[in-house]
Computed example of a mutant assay.
Amino acid sequence: MKKEKIMQMIQAYDGLNLYMTTDTPESPRAVVIISHGMCEHSGRYAAVTQKLFDRGFKVYRYDLRGHGKSEGERGFYSAPDEITEDLHRIVDIASEENPGLKRFLLGYSMGGFAVADFCTKYPDKAEGAILFDAATRDNLGGFSRVSQSLDPLTRFPNKLAKRLTSDPEVTAAYKADPLNASYFTAGLSQQLTLGIRQLTANSTFRLPVLLLHGEKDTLVDPSDSTDFFAQIASEDKHLKIYGNTQHEIFNEAVKNQVMTDVTRWIENRL
């Protein structure tokens, strides 16, 4: 399939530059926007993008502020809605460029929070959400264990690599990738804690949603997804837990099944 790839800097709502990549097939069937997790970047989603592209979907992916090639203090947020409003900007660009095409948002881990929060606040701006091991709750206390009174610029080393996937090649590549952050800040955890609290208190999420989670995820507990599933207002909602899989289900042995599940789910809603 013929492919057009565009890599560019776009301005966020506050003027900060975000790095965005767009992959466009000849005749797009729908738009998918990918929001990645903490301490990584959108380039790690090339394989996911290819699977979506092969099914005729136009894919937008971007580096979150303070991540990858985007501007901003590394691994830092100063308000709980920054991550959501950056996604809002990408969705608006995708909508302007693709009138008449349905928009589906795919969020992983921290990016899953951004997607869930965005769809709760702006339900008319997307037709559905896919959440991979999403931080829609914080049952393990990964974010909330950082005190709100700590200096927001306090740095914590990135020790995620060994808990992301059981694939040693992916782990080695993650460690060697210079665009993956070596640290994150207290500010990121503090603001995500506040954001997740707000999301938990607001159960009005009503869009079609596909929740996918790894059974042995030790970074975002599967109960985060089961709780979110039980509490939201969506009538069209599906939850699948993949057995014997860690946090990056798209990099586990089930990765082809994961993407088959995703593409079929989208196609059934076109």
Rank of each mutant, 00 (worst) to 15 (best):
M1N: 11
K2W: 03
K3H: 08
K3Q: 15
M9S: 09
M9Y: 15
M9W: 07
Q11M: 02
A12I: 02
A12P: 01
A12V: 01
A12H: 10
D14M: 12
G15K: 07
N17R: 15
L18A: 04
T21D: 11
T24C: 14
E26H: 09
S27C: 10
S27G: 04
P28E: 10
V32T: 15
I33T: 08
I34Q: 09
H36S: 05
C39V: 15
A46S: 06
A46D: 14
A46E: 13
A47S: 06
A47P: 00
A47K: 04
A47C: 00
F53V: 12
D54Y: 03
D54K: 13
K58W: 00
K58I: 13
Y60W: 09
Y60C: 10
L64Q: 14
R65L: 01
G66M: 02
G66V: 06
H67V: 04
K69H: 11
G72K: 00
R74Q: 14
P80N: 13
D81H: 15
T84V: 15
D86M: 07
D86T: 10
S95A: 15
N98P: 12
G100L: 03
L106K: 12
L106F: 12
S109K: 03
S109H: 04
F113K: 00
V115L: 08
V115K: 14
C119P: 10
C119M: 14
P123V: 02
D124W: 06
K125C: 10
E127L: 00
A135P: 08
G141L: 12
F143M: 14
R145M: 12
S147E: 09
L150Q: 15
L153Y: 15
T154V: 09
F156A: 04
P157V: 06
P157A: 06
N158H: 12
K159G: 12
K159F: 05
L160W: 11
A161Q: 11
R163Q: 10
L164E: 11
S166H: 14
S166C: 07
E169G: 12
V170P: 05
A172T: 10
Y174D: 09
K175S: 01
A176Y: 02
F184V: 06
T185M: 02
A186V: 08
G187K: 05
S189Q: 04
Q191I: 00
T193L: 03
L194I: 07
N202A: 06
S203A: 12
S203R: 15
T204G: 01
T204I: 02
L207H: 01
L207R: 07
L207Y: 05
P208C: 03
V209S: 02
L211E: 05
H213D: 08
K216V: 00
D217G: 09
T218A: 13
L219F: 05
V220P: 10
V220E: 03
D224W: 01
D227W: 03
A230N: 13
S234C: 01
S234I: 00
N244P: 02
Q246L: 14
N251C: 00
E252L: 00
A253I: 10
V254S: 01
Q257Y: 00
V258N: 08
V262K: 05
V262M: 05
T263L: 06
R264Y: 09
L270R: 05
